[in-house]
């Protein structure tokens, strides 16, 4: 679905290099590496919110149609990228990223509303699976951190995206809650047949929920610069 070849991203003496990465339906990946290794940067590249350096290939295939993402970035087609993002991606942020002025039901339904999808039982069903069905009418501020993460997961899945990206989704949760939330995320993504990519520093948890580890290796270069390379899955 998403195909990367020799994609790089440099900023402030830091350089991320992705020689080869393919995302396929049903795939379950965990990006692991020390902090500062560029897990979030790679996720942003995958989420089409960060432009790659010139050169290399970054393509998204949907319904048999291939979009040249690197080319869209070069031509500054922000709105086409936004459109692709809204259809193909679900994104779970480290700290919720919920809209404080919308109640939980509207927050979850937002990704569907944006695509003009009809209201159906999806939001209710997701809320039940994620154990937040009794919170639907509340504002995010009234929820615990763990509940907010579940709402965020529900929103990332509500429009049935092909790819679900999660950036340290459990970093701000206690271990018990973290385990439960991670299980729910993986189980729901699996149920929808979505490809899931989780950036996390908790390798043990990633392995316990059945994610395949993919490591970012960090090398320090002479002048205080950092080169991070995504190693082949293995």
């Amino acid at each position: 679905m998403l195909r990367l070849r020799d994609i790089g991203k440099s900023r402030n003496g830091y350089r991320l290099l992705v020689p080869r990465l393919d995302l396929r339906p049903g795939q379950r990946l965990a990006l692991v590496g020390p902090s500062g290794s560029g897990k979030s940067t790679l996720l942003d590249l995958l989420a089409l919110v960060l432009s790659p350096d010139p050169g290399g290939t970054l393509e998204l295939t949907r319904d048999g149609r291939i979009s040249d993402i690197a080319g869209l970035w070069r031509h500054g087609r922000q709105d086409l990228l936004a459109e692709l993002r809204s259809r193909a991606m679900g994104y779970v942020l480290q700290t919720g990223g919920l809209l404080g002025f919308l109640d939980v039901r509207r927050n979850i339904g937002l990704s569907r509303a944006l695509l003009g999808m009809a209201e159906d039982a999806t939001v209710q069903r997701l809320a039940e699976r994620l154990e937040i069905a009794d919170q639907l009418h509340k504002l995010p501020a009234a929820l615990s951190v763990g509940q907010r993460q579940r709402v965020s997961i529900a929103r990332a899945l509500a429009h049935s995206p092909a790819i679900v990206l999660a950036d340290e989704p459990t970093a701000s949760l206690d271990p018990l809650n973290a385990e439960r939330v991670m299980q729910l995320l993986v189980a729901q993504a699996e149920e929808q047949g979505a490809c899931i990519v989780v950036a996390t520093h908790d390798e043990a948890l990633a392995q316990r929920v059945g994610l395949q580890l993919q490591r970012l290796q960090v090398q320090r270069s002479g002048a205080g610069g950092v080169l991070a390379t995504l190693l082949e899955a293995g």
Binding site: V49, D79, A82, E83, S86, M89, Y91, G100, S111, L114
Partner: peptide, 15 residues
């Protein structure tokens, strides 16, 4: 800013 960037992330257009 944060809410707006979340909307952007969800795929809302500049318009």
């Amino acid at each position: 800013r944060r809410a707006l960037s979340v909307l952007r992330l969800l795929g809302f257009s500049s318009t």
